[in-house]
């Protein structure tokens, strides 16, 4: 997906048609921010239109620097989407299913970030088929192609206990320096809603393989 151009929500925006053709360093950043903001689950067409109008009237810096309420909202959406993507690529654990050359993971999303997340892993592991289940739907990526399915869980074969998970837990424990204990900061960096995916933080999370 390109940055903004192919997103249907912008097709009928007259302001966007005028802005799209222009280019500058600021506009490149703006288009990238727009791409992310449009993936937000609460993205509102009216705010986007207002922001594009402000960009025309006051310049791109006015929007990028969040001078108006709408611009601030717009950039917050973009930031929240980027944060979700970052946390997903950090906290998704992949399970190798070697007989099928598959790396399989699970996660929950609030925004429409499934595609950019799976692209991250496809670039990182090009020889594998990447399968990630995001609750009701799952993304499958291989050779630059992405498919979405709802029947992934049922078709996965059972896998043996993973010995490397135990090694990971041992390594994780070894890195802790008790004299520096700072649970508050840790919880700030790993909000509780992600704990269920992280066995090292949540020992109750069942060993899925």
């Amino acid at each position: 997906m390109g940055e903004g151009e192919s997103l249907p929500v912008l097709k009928h925006s007259k302001n966007w048609v005028r802005v799209r053709e222009r280019s500058s360093e600021g506009l490149t950043i703006f288009k990238s921010e727009l791409f992310y903001a449009l993936l937000h689950s609460k993205c509102d067409q009216k705010i986007i239109d207002a922001v594009i109008k402000q960009l025309e009237e006051n310049g791109v810096s006015y929007v990028l620097c969040k001078v108006s309420h709408e611009a601030k909202q717009f950039r917050n959406w973009a930031r929240q989407v980027k944060v979700e993507k970052m946390r997903a690529v950090s906290f998704i654990r992949l399970r190798p299913i070697d007989q099928h050359n598959v790396l399989y993971g699970e996660f929950e999303l609030r925004h429409k970030t499934g595609e950019i997340i799976i692209l991250h892993f496809m670039n990182r592991f090009p020889t594998y088929k990447i399968m990630i289940s995001f609750g009701k739907e799952a993304f499958i990526g291989k050779d630059g192609q992405i498919a979405v399915t709802t029947r992934l869980i049922a078709s996965l074969p059972p896998t043996p206990i993973d010995p490397f998970e135990k090694l990971w837990l041992t390594f994780y424990k070894s890195q802790y320096i008790p004299e520096r204990k700072n649970l508050r900061y840790m919880q700030q960096m790993v909000p509780k809603r992600y704990w269920k995916w992280l066995r090292e933080i949540n020992p109750d999370y069942p060993n899925r393989g």
Partner: peptide, 9 residues
């Protein structure tokens, strides 16, 4: 990319 955080943050 940070893949986890220890209790010392």
């Amino acid at each position: 990319i940070c893949h986890s955080y220890t209790p010392d943050g």
